[in-house]
Design a protein around this nucleic acid. Structure first.
Lengths: 206, 206
DNA sequence: TAGATTGTTAATCGATTAACAATC
DNA sequence: TAGATTGTTAATCGATTAACAATC
């Protein structure tokens, strides 16, 4: 299986390719790696290597069959599998993610949110239920939740991470401003907004 | 000047260190690189190198003076300078970012949002005004806005980027699901949620 | 055949980590 | 002096890019 060999950086570009291919699939049937590279200002060898990791069905002179490529990327990203996720922290950011429909394209189904604020418990936002934090363990086990999204304040983040990993969650999407520690078999992806801001802010002062 | 030599990856970790140092500054006066590394599961040489890029005032046996280090990191990140920013796209995510107070710690002041939806124009969210898209050029020039945050749907993202860069904006924070092209002197930071999701989702299927 | 395009092998680059010397 | 800790130099690793061979 080639599966495990796909590098993280390649994987990150896949959704970008997928989205673009879907946007042009009605206008044409084939596309070259250079055309994709040109669209995004990437190196064409890089695109070819990325696509080779999931496809290997590019043909000299004609390029890649768009529909075939779409299927192969969807397969690679697991778009057809379905993953249950919960959000902990139903503040503004938590609610924004809760109501973002686009995740469904990637097979992600956010089934509920949890919050310590008792006035939120039992309410519904955008069709998704918000429960009290006490119910999180039971819910995750019962619904076989595999992914946890943390949008709590920094102070609660590590504790939340510990609780989620203790009830079978294997991947954490962390939007809080700190790095989280987790057991070896749990992957934490840090979406640290302050880090991105640091890069932008530095550029502005140069 | 050491300034330009700070690598992107080092810069990304700076806000994490800063936040941690602020959280312990009342309990102690000094800290070692190894203690910081242990806290986040990082390599201690890496932390030492990161800190050396902004400080160089660590002392054998005693480590770093916490308050001094905080000042040096704040200086490096430009926390005391103030940057005016606008958000284009006042949907759920745009509003979440609009109301996120934490950006102020890094000198970022989101002064307004813009949206094509006429029913939003003229309203106020969390104390911040939302204007019609037609006003964006005039506003950005008048308020000397240097950073633009794009939270529009994919279809509008590149056009928005072009309009923003045309009126003097030098850095773009892109939350839409596509890579944006920009003039050489404009830095685009892509906060691609689908990319992160791809990594997490892959991990869950292995 | 010539030309466009893929795919592979080698070179380069940047970041992390290991080994070690310097210093308080 | 011994021990803890910094800081530097060299080795390793992963990702990007360049050069080139293969193929339709």
């Amino acid at each position: 299986m080639k599966y495990e060999e796909i590098s993280k950086t390649t994987l990150r570009r896949m959704p970008v390719y997928l989205h673009y291919l879907n946007s042009v699939k009605n206008e044409r049937t084939n596309i070259s790696a250079s055309a994709i590279a040109g669209k995004f200002g990437l190196n064409d060898v890089q695109v070819r290597k990325d696509l080779a990791a999931v496809s290997g069905s590019g043909r000299p002179k004609t390029g890649y069959d768009i529909n075939e490529l779409i299927s192969q990327i969807e397969e690679c990203l697991g778009c057809r599998d379905r993953t249950n996720a919960v959000i902990v922290g139903a503040g503004n950011l938590g609610k924004a993610l809760l109501s973002f429909a686009g995740f469904m394209d990637y097979g992600l189904d956010i089934v509920a949110a949890f919050d310590t604020d008792p006035s939120l418990a039992g309410t519904v936002f955008n069709g998704k239920p918000i429960y009290s934090m006490e119910e999180v363990e039971g819910f995750c086990r019962a619904q076989d939740v595999k992914l946890g999204i943390i949008t709590t304040p920094v102070g609660a983040a590590q504790k939340t991470c510990d609780r989620l990993t203790a009830c079978g969650i294997k991947a954490i999407w962390n939007f809080s401003q700190t790095i989280l520690r987790s057991p070896e078999d749990v992957l934490v992806e840090n979406e640290n907004l302050a880090s991105s801001l640091a890069i932008l802010s530095k550029h502005l002062r140069e």
